[in-house]
């Protein structure tokens, strides 16, 4: 096994560009999944089967099918319907939508974990429904779900390389491009492999610290 340090230093500029794209995808994708997941979770609480059944079926479908195929679907089918986005936008929408079906479960659990007494107190104080949600239920629910949401951010980080398949040049895309141009596969692929381990390890440390702060 031979290891060429000069290939590593040649790859580094591409690596930083790829890292930037990966982080962009991660941040915007997380925001989409946080907002959309909350929307799904709230829609699932509408007391009508006409609302919960379709929302439940669609999210179940999205959760149980591969993100890669969903990305292909968005990438190839949306233009046929006259909607053209850049690959990066398509990827961010796809990954955010996919993960929103996971965060939805987390929000649901967080909302269900709010004690019934809180609901009863809101009723006793004659709070309107909107105020009950925004001032009583959601602040308590969201505090509980932050660590679990953070876990999905870390999983999402590990799914960002899938965007390479729809021509986004994130870390893996940059590594592949570089290896094919220079016929050096070992160094760039190992560098990004290590980068993923380091980033997700740091993120999990950060998350643990955040969790400790929120619990007390």
């Amino acid at each position: 096994m031979k290891w060429d340090w000069s290939a590593v230093s040649d790859f580094m500029p591409h690596f930083w560009e790829g890292l930037l794209v990966t982080l962009q995808v991660l941040v915007i994708g997380s925001l989409i999944s946080f907002v959309l997941g909350l929307v799904w979770a709230l829609l699932m609480r509408v007391p009508s089967r006409w609302m919960t059944w379709p929302v439940g079926a669609v999210t179940e479908f999205v959760r149980n099918t591969p993100l890669l195929v969903q990305l292909f679907f968005l990438f190839y089918v949306l233009p046929e319907w006259g909607l053209t986005f850049s690959p990066l936008t398509t990827g961010v929408i796809g990954i955010g939508l996919h993960y929103s079906t996971y965060t939805m479960q987390v929000y649901r659990a967080g909302i269900e974990a709010v004690p019934v007494g809180q609901w009863e107190a809101a009723t006793a104080l004659n709070l309107p429904l909107g105020r009950t949600w925004t001032a009583v239920i959601l602040p308590q629910a969201i505090r509980r779900v932050v660590p679990a949401l953070g876990n999905y951010v870390i999983s999402m980080l590990k799914d960002t390389p899938l965007l390479m398949a729809i021509t986004v040049l994130e870390m893996l895309g940059e590594a592949r491009l570089f290896s094919q141009a220079n016929f050096q596969f070992t160094e760039p692929l190992t560098v990004i492999g290590v980068a993923f381990v380091v980033i997700s390890y740091l993120a999990s440390l950060l998350l643990r610290a955040l969790e400790r702060r929120l619990v007390h």
Partner: peptide, 24 residues
């Protein structure tokens, strides 16, 4: 577990396909 959970499955697949053959 930390290493294999830390890295992405797709990166691992690339690694097995492209790095293992020449390296070992």
């Amino acid at each position: 577990t930390e290493v294999f959970r830390g890295t992405s499955a797709l990166v691992m697949i690339f690694w097995v396909f492209f790095v293992l053959p020449p390296a070992f």
